[in-house]
Amino acid sequence: MNRTMITATNTLSQLQKQMDIVSHNMANIDTSGYKRREASFTDLLFQQFNNQQNPAEEMNRLTPNGIRQGVGAKLAQSKIVMTQGSLKNTERALDMAFTKEGQYFRVLEQSDNGTAVRYTRDGAFYLTPLSESENMLVTGNGYPVLDENNNPITINGQVSDYLVTQNGRLVATMDNGTTREFNLGVVQVNKPQFLEQKGGNLLGLPENIADLNVAENEILTELNGQLRSEVSIQQRALEQSNVDMSKEMTDLINLQRAYQFQSRSISIADQMMGLVNGIR
């Protein structure tokens, strides 16, 4: 296999990863609170040939000295784009939407591997019964919604109405006229590049966070106490995804053209090798 084939093959594998990111964005265009991802590329290692032995001959050259022969490109980063999505009024009491970028609800994911705190912008919450008189606030996937102390929100008795204040306080009005109040668990994401997608429209801290030389409080800030004033929530609305279908389609077309170009490079290299091998 010659250098052209190696370069094209390396780049094809990385283009496939970007294509997966774009298709994932397009598949979640109607997912509430979803934040699209954007891929960026960088060059792989290259080899430099200093064909000009006399540096004086390189004066006034606009390009770097020598000849650089690369081995393709690689996917450098897949970052979350945290821009605010549009709001859709639902007139449903337990639908909530953030109106500030970077704020997330805390939920408790339960799986075969145990429980872990996750983060989501999807504010479509529901009640699931724990007993005849007790209900728990959960996400659409059934994960408990946490309060500011990381405890599941449970409500005893029959509720006649719900009110969600702008700073994230859930007020449940009972049938007997009394009220129960809960401060929803909210975090501000400072460094989204450290968060990983955990499936189900959830984000979480990486398992190897101890090896990344970064503290958890540098990535996230819990908006409790005096910081509650920074929370901005709108009730009876849901945030739509920030995916722009026209942009994703344009990126996909460009990706297809780049994929075809690299595939064509392999075909031409194979034809050239066939011609050389056929010389007698």
Rank of each mutant, 00 (worst) to 15 (best):
V187C: 06
N156G: 09
V186G: 01
L255D: 04
N217R: 04
L252D: 06
M59E: 11
T63V: 13
I80G: 05
Q52N: 10
I279R: 11
A269M: 04
G274K: 08
L227R: 12
Q77V: 12
A97T: 07
Y119M: 02
I219A: 07
T250E: 08
Q235D: 05
R121V: 06
I266R: 04
L170A: 01
R257W: 07
Q197M: 09
M245Q: 13
R257K: 12
R68W: 09
Q240E: 14
V189N: 00
G225A: 10
N217S: 12
Q226E: 15
M249V: 15
T99S: 10
Q256S: 11
R106W: 05
L220W: 02
G168N: 05
N50R: 11
R169L: 13
Q158N: 14
S246G: 10
E101G: 08
E91I: 04
G66Q: 02
N176F: 10
L227A: 15
Q110I: 11
M5P: 03
P129L: 06
L170V: 04
Q235K: 04
G199R: 04
F49W: 08
T139Y: 03
T42Q: 14
N28L: 09
S13W: 02
E181C: 08
G102T: 01
L238P: 00
V186Y: 00
S232L: 02
L252P: 00
G168H: 03
E222K: 08
D270L: 02
D20Y: 02
G278Y: 03
P152Q: 00
L223A: 03
L195T: 01
A73M: 14
N135Q: 14
V189C: 08
G199Q: 06
L223C: 03
L12N: 06
Y143W: 08
R37F: 10
M5C: 09
N167L: 02
S267G: 07
I266E: 08
L146Q: 03
Y119S: 02
V145D: 00
T178R: 09
G278M: 06
S23D: 07
I219L: 07
E132T: 10
P129S: 09
S160D: 15
A56V: 12
L62A: 15
S229N: 10
G168E: 03
T83K: 12
R36I: 03
P192Y: 01
L163A: 14
Q262F: 07
Q240A: 15
G70H: 00
G70N: 01
V22Q: 00
T9C: 10
Y126R: 12
E207M: 11
T154S: 12
R92W: 07
G70W: 02
Q256N: 13
A27Y: 06
